[in-house]
């Protein structure tokens, strides 16, 4: 069987298991390429029925405007319900506190906002686009990953997962994170996007943008990051390889303006996909620590 097909069938199987095993599941939708891929797979999994899950987006208030626009249009076209959890609201109501200083980011605030949203809507399962090849602690994930009633991931007590049998039985208050594209690599995702002709937010493709350099990475200029003396703004031809907040996603210099060129670029890349994720560089275990607290 063709490799991409095998991955597609596996993902559809997992997505259908979520629909069958849970009463109130959702798709975590960031507007990035992985969640777009997930939503597309969900459409195929249930066709001609509609997707039985809402799309949940945790809006940090620091998103790329292109991504927000894309998100709304996408949900509309999919005829899916969009649920937005807002970090800004949580800050305004005093539930969360803004970080300070040069590296201030709302990335850490995303997790509590996500957990609140899950609680508020009573979601018992959330489908995420996490992939094992992205990052070393993600490499440890199961298809169905149990979170306790504080949303936390207990890495030492993960359930065994045998063959393709998924055990989503949980106690009240617990929930499941499901990762249908666990076994996809970055290259697989792009290859699939090409094959299925999926539209993506424009910032995945080469474009000119005002940027500055910090710690060897190219940061996008935005209202959310304060420049310090000595940092010089300069327009660069860039694209983004992963899309998070404007305060945690660095760009890469690239002329790749279509999928073929991106595939070529990834095949020959000297850096890894998350090499430009500022939130991963905070420490050696940055991702694991965030995941333990409930990030996906």
């Amino acid at each position: 069987m063709e490799y991409l097909k095998e991955l597609e069938y596996e993902a559809i199987y997992v997505i259908r298991e979520v629909a069958a095993q849970f009463e109130n599941a959702a798709i975590l939708f960031s507007g990035g390429k992985d969640s777009i891929t997930i939503a597309h797979l969900a459409r195929k999994a249930f066709f001609p029925a509609s997707i039985p899950f809402p799309l949940v987006h945790v809006d940090t208030g620091h998103n790329f405007p292109e991504v927000m626009e894309f998100r709304d249009a996408f949900a509309n076209e999919l005829d899916a319900r969009l649920v937005v959890g807002s970090v800004q609201e949580a800050i305004d109501s005093g539930d969360l506190m803004e970080q300070k200083g040069k590296y201030a980011s709302r990335n850490m605030l995303q997790t509590p906002a996500l957990l609140k949203t899950i609680e508020r809507f009573g979601f018992d399962a959330c489908i995420g686009g996490g992939r094992r090849d992205e990052e070393k602690s993600r490499a440890k994930e199961r298809f169905f990953s149990v979170r306790n009633d504080f949303g936390q991931w207990d890495v030492k007590r993960q359930r065994p997962e045998l063959f393709d049998m998924l055990n989503g039985k949980i106690h009240k208050g617990e929930n499941i994170r499901a990762f249908p594209i666990s076994n996809w690599t970055e290259l697989d995702v792009w290859n699939y996007i090409k094959q299925e002709q999926l539209a993506l937010p424009s910032l995945y493709y080469s474009h000119m943008r005002p940027t500055f350099e910090r710690d060897g990475l190219i940061w996008p200029v935005s209202d959310f990051v304060r420049l310090v003396p000595g940092e010089i703004v300069r327009p660069r031809r860039v694209r983004f390889r992963t899309v998070g907040d404007m305060s945690c996603s660095a760009a890469m210099e690239s002329g790749a303006s279509n999928i073929d060129e991106i595939l070529y670029e990834i095949e020959n890349a000297q850096t890894s996909e998350r090499g430009a994720r500022i939130d991963d560089k905070w420490s050696e275990a940055a991702m694991e620590l965030r995941k333990v607290e409930g990030y996906f």
């Binding site: 490499a139 030492k156 076994n183 275990a285 694991e288």
Partner: peptide, 18 residues
């Protein structure tokens, strides 16, 4: 890839690599 694994120099859970 886990903190506990690196501290103890052992593997605790499966990692999948590609």
């Amino acid at each position: 890839g886990l903190v506990a694994e690196r501290e103890q120099g052992i593997t605790i859970d499966v990692a999948h690599v590609y």
